[in-house]
Amino acid sequence: MTAATVIDLDVATVRDLNARLQALGRDSNLGPVHVRHPRGRHALAVGVSAPVDILLDGPVGYYAGGMNDGARIVIDGNAATGVAENMMAGLVRVRGDASQSAGATAHGGLLVIEGNAGARCGISLKGADIVVGGSVGHMSAFMAQSGTLVVCGDAGEALGDSLYEARLFVRGAVRSLGADCEEKPMGAAERALVAALLDRAGMAAIDAASFRCFGSARRLYHFHVDNAQAY
């Protein structure tokens, strides 16, 4: 066990932190980095390509872990808008709640939110996987293109509006489905997908069979005037 590198944001600047983390190469073998006193600061640990373990020790501001490219980031607190936005690879885990637009446009990697996520969770998702232990707010997975959103709690209004090929799984209640989102059969392949994601998220105790599956009805894939109200 390597001793943790401690960076205290009451002393170091956000620029210091990010410059140091971004300088690590993909083959870095640096041990864990413990970031103290984040105090809601923005843009923490963004654009890190090294497979390094980073602990953000408290609530963080906007875009924590933004464009993460391989780091394993744990946020021990709540995360503000756009956590792990446009993530390319790696892991971001929020031990508390996440605000709106969590995992927005993320291309790869896994975002785990142990608490609840706000509105627009997984908006324009482009291939990443998101597992939310609690509930998600309205317009989640809006225009989500590919990837997976697993919600162990409830989903707010207009889930999956204008959905493309992302797959959505919800265990609790869905307040309403957005335009072009429909329930799909939950088969063995879907159960296996959910089980694998729950396992990676550390939530293997939850029964994958208890989720419902949602996807695109593909009615908006080609314009038709009778669907105009859905645009």
Partner: peptide
């Protein structure tokens, strides 16, 4: 933003939430 709450007494133990739409 949470940053503005970070200095309040007892914030570590507060119930943090976002008001619903």
């Amino acid at each position: 933003e949470y940053r503005a709450l970070a200095g309040l007494p007892g914030i570590e133990a507060a119930r943090l939430f976002e008001p619903d739409a």
